[in-house]
């Protein structure tokens, strides 16, 4: 009986350790604590060029993550990229005239949507669209423009 009991204790300890490990993976290693699944509200923004932004890219405001990109698709009429973002529930007072940019974290880092708040009293709600946007900077275009300008200057 004593042996049976100690097996029970050990199995219990093993299962508890396994679940603690799973919990650790969920809360500490992954974003379960941050994403809070499907909470929050959706806003969309249109960009002439969405760069390499992908679903799950962060949406941040003043450097703080406030949400995630949910979906990127092409509007086939206007040929614009429509980026759907899910903003955390707690951040519920983003002005409607907020400016959305696509930035790159560092020179080679991943791209994210940066929000710069406007001055309006009204806040964005679920399903609203951010109208003021600036597209991603494409490195090749920048370099091209730079060379073109230099060439023009040299020609003068």
């Amino acid at each position: 009986m004593a042996k049976q009991h100690s097996i029970e204790v050990l199995v219990g300890a093993f299962m508890a350790a396994g679940f603690v490990a799973l919990f650790f993976l969920a809360m500490q290693v992954s974003n379960l604590s941050a994403s809070a699944a499907s909470d929050g509200y959706r806003v969309t923004a249109r960009f002439t060029n969405a760069g390499s932004i992908k679903a799950r890219a962060p949406v941040s405001m003043a450097g703080v993550r406030v949400g995630r990109v949910e979906q990127v698709r092409l509007d086939q009429k206007t040929y614009e990229a429509v980026v759907t973002m899910r903003i955390d529930k707690g951040v519920n007072n983003i002005p409607v005239d907020t400016f959305a940019n696509i930035f790159t974290a560092g020179l080679l880092g991943e791209q994210y949507v940066g929000l710069q708040p406007g001055g309006s009293q009204d806040s964005l709600r679920d399903g609203d669209e951010i109208t003021q946007t600036q597209s991603a900077l494409i490195l090749e275009q920048l370099i091209g423009q730079f060379l073109f300008k230099k060439a023009e200057e040299g020609g003068k």
């Binding site: 799973l22 993976l25 500490q28 290693v29 992954s30 379960l32």
Partner: peptide
């Protein structure tokens, strides 16, 4: 840990 939490998705990865 910060980068880890930002990039590892619970549903996708764990």
């Amino acid at each position: 840990f910060g980068q880890m939490q930002a990039k590892i998705d619970f549903r996708e990865d764990v």
